[in-house]
Nucleic acid binder design. Structure first.
Lengths: 133, 133
DNA sequence: TCAAAATCAGTAACGATTACTGTTTTATTA
DNA sequence: TAATAAAACAGTAATCGTTACTGATTTTGA
């Protein structure tokens, strides 16, 4: 099954590249719909999965029920705000070495890890009231 | 809404305590059904959520579509086998300090992190064929 | 320009989980 | 012990994110 070009997939990728938050499939759908009003949600899901399988984007499971997508595939970590739900990229030094710590005394092969940090983001720390929407 | 005792909840908690793998709700249901044949899946979900909210058990989002539950609420990390899907407790030294690394140059409050490791478990490394079920 | 294959839009189905409803248990008070 | 209110129950329906299906449209290479 060779992959063929599709304008919808290109638009989805382009949209993701413009965003630094990490949108869910329905947010992608809402935005790409402005360019292709007839695009279907199934097409969005199919292409997000395709792009992730090709390694062009990253799929994030953050435990909030919906998958998030990130056009930045370089090694980096994420922060999830417990108040507003925002997902923020962290610039932090590598913690790859935790793989070796995990491997000590373990009889399998550690291939990698999934880590995300949580807490309260800068904006929510500032105004003490805001809550998730 | 004060919490009242329930035999079903006790049985769910007891079952979880006997297990070191980290069963999903339907596995809990299947097993507790042997003691309370009329228990309903909704009761299992409700009590798992209750126990997790009370801090008596831990809910794990491992990105495989189903939540897993762990009666061990002490600080420890998990390994997920990419071949057989097994979830294994890791005995490893604390990596709590990654919270501070994440906080460097970040303007919010880091409260904690979720980490799990993946790769191939000891058993699957041994026999090269096995796949997830 | 033609044909094969991939992709599409639209819709139905799926699986995990949650919500609803009338009945049963639990806990309290008499 | 009996009465009562509140919580939990079983059973079922609904929800929600996601995937699968179908016949029409696009892409691509000859």
């Amino acid at each position: 099954m060779a992959i063929k070009y599709s304008r919808q997939r290109e638009a989805i990728k382009e949209f993701l590249c413009t965003r630094k938050d990490h949108p869910t499939a329905d947010v992608v759908y809402a935005n790409v719909s402005r360019i292709y009003p007839n695009i279907s949600l199934g097409t969005v899901y199919r292409n997000l999965t395709l792009l992730a399988d090709m390694g062009e984007i990253q799929r994030l499971h953050l435990g909030d029920g919906q998958d998030h997508f990130d056009a930045d595939t370089s090694e980096h970590y994420h922060f999830v705000c417990q108040k507003c739900g925002r997902v923020i990229d962290l610039q932090m030094e590598s913690i790859e070495r935790i793989n070796e710590l995990a491997g000590v005394g373990f009889d399998g092969q550690i291939a990698g890890h999934i880590t995300y940090f949580y807490g309260v983001c800068g904006e929510c720390s500032a105004d003490g009231s805001k809550s998730a929407g």
